[in-house]
Structures are given as C-alpha cells and as structure tokens.
C-alpha cells in the first residue's frame, strides 16, 4: 500500500504572469482513490494534465508509476478522461471505442471482450451502435469513461468524471471504481462536488493553485471540527 504511484515534487506552473499552481508536493499511493477537490479555476485540471503528461510544470517534477512525466512509455499505462467529452460525434460508440482501443494496441478477441466489459460497466451496452451525436450529455460522459478504461490502465486519471450523470448512475459508476480499486487500480478524480469527495479514500483540497489540505474525508472533518467536507474546506480556505 505504501509505495507511491505518484510523487509530485515542489510543482509550480504559471502561464505568463498567471500562476496556476504554487509549490505543490504530494504522494499518492497504489490502490487508493484520491480526489482533488476545489472550485473551478483552482488548478485541478492543470495538475492532472501534468500527471497525464499533457503539460509540464514550470518548476518541480512529477513522477508517475516510477518514471518522470512526460514519457510516452508511461502514458501507455495511464487512462485519462478529460473534462471535455473527447469523442467523435460522427461515429458510433463502437467505432469510437475501436479507435481508442487501437491507439493502445488492443486488437482481436481481447479488444471485443474489453469493449463489452467497459460498456457493461457504464451501462451503455444497448447503445453500442448508436451515433455519438445522438447521445445525451450523460451518455457521452459515460462513453468517455469507458474509453479511458479500455486498456486496463494501472492508473486512472479522471477529470470531473460524473458531471451531468444522474445520482443512480453515479452510484453505479462509483461501485465500478471500487471494483477497479480492489483489482489494484489507482484512481485519481477531480471534483467540485462536496458529497462526491466523501467517497474518496483521501482528498487533496485545492484552492487558488495551492494544496491547502490533504487527508481522508474523516480526518479533514475531525481536524477542523466540521460536520461536512464543505465546512472543512471553508476552514482550510481561511474563511
């Protein structure tokens, strides 16, 4: 449990004069579900993009799965779902998945099996042959998730995975996350929804580019004498 899957070392990032991340250091361990909680604009997306390898820090270093990011070899072992549904509307769900599976070298019966499995998990098996442009927002979100899971990544990085998904489905998706966790997958999610944050093993609270607190939801509430994560966030945020 204690070998870090991710080590973030003194990472800062600025775009011109605008500082987005400020001296962040953090370790995330194998098999945990770690949530980055914070309002939009806090820097969560920039941070996870650096972990995926899409961005590089201005200062500091990110180590993922034992190597320094960005690295193409490591990217193969990471599953990423961005905030935008990166799907091709002109294609069917099946064609989308086939495309993404091919990017990771999945083929033949294994590809078919994986596609069935991930579509089962996001409960879209019946809509496999529909064009994505006919999907609802929530369905697109789930298909994006399915695409990220296809190649059985050791590390899953999900940027706001359950936005626009109804509570019943959200629960079933989280059940899926717990299943993956049991199999040893490390999952990182970003969220601005406080009750979703409660579902994570550990949380990192992000505000104005700073990591203001790290701990399990219970610890964070205890340390601040608050009843809810929201109150705890307010205390750490200096309100």
């Amino acid at each position: 449990m204690n070998n870090p899957v991710i080590t973030i070392k003194n990472v800062s990032k600025s775009f011109g004069k605008n500082q987005v991340l400020e001296n962040i250091s953090l370790e995330i361990h194998s098999g945990e579900i770690f949530g980055f909680l914070g309002p939009s604009g806090a820097g969560k997306t920039t941070l996870v993009k650096e972990l995926v390898g899409l961005d590089t820090p201005t200062k500091g270093e990110n180590f993922v799965l034992g190597g320094k990011m960005p690295s193409l070899g490591l990217m193969e072992r990471v599953g990423y779902m961005s905030q935008a549904d990166a799907l091709y509307g002109e294609l069917s769900a099946k064609e989308n998945l086939e495309f993404f599976a091919a990017l990771y070298g999945l083929k033949g019966p294994n590809r078919k099996k994986r596609m069935e499995m991930v579509m089962e998990m996001v409960q879209l098996s019946d809509d496999l042959n529909k064009l994505v442009s006919n999907y609802s927002g929530g369905m697109k979100r789930r298909l994006s998730l399915a695409a990220a899971l296809l190649h059985e990544p050791e590390l899953l990085i999900l940027d706001e995975p359950t936005v626009g998904i109804d509570p019943v489905l959200r629960k079933s998706i989280w059940d899926g996350f717990y299943d993956l966790k049991k199999k040893g997958t490390t999952i990182i999610v970003t969220t601005h929804v406080m009750d979703e944050a409660e579902k994570c093993d550990r949380l990192g609270m992000v505000r104005n580019g700073k990591l203001i607190a790290v701990g399990s939801p219970e610890e964070l509430k205890e340390n601040t004498n608050s009843g809810t994560i929201e109150d705890a966030f307010l205390v750490y945020g200096g309100a």
């Binding site: 899409l54 961005s82 935008a84 993404f100 990017l103």
Partner: peptide, 14 residues
C-alpha cells in the same frame, strides 16, 4: 477544439 486532440495526445500516440 472538441478536445479529441488532447485525448489523442494523452495516449502513447506520437
């Protein structure tokens, strides 16, 4: 603009 390029670049695609 649709974010699919970013998705492509998050894969090991060169």
């Amino acid at each position: 603009t649709s974010g699919t390029l970013e998705r492509l670049l998050s894969s090991p695609l060169r």
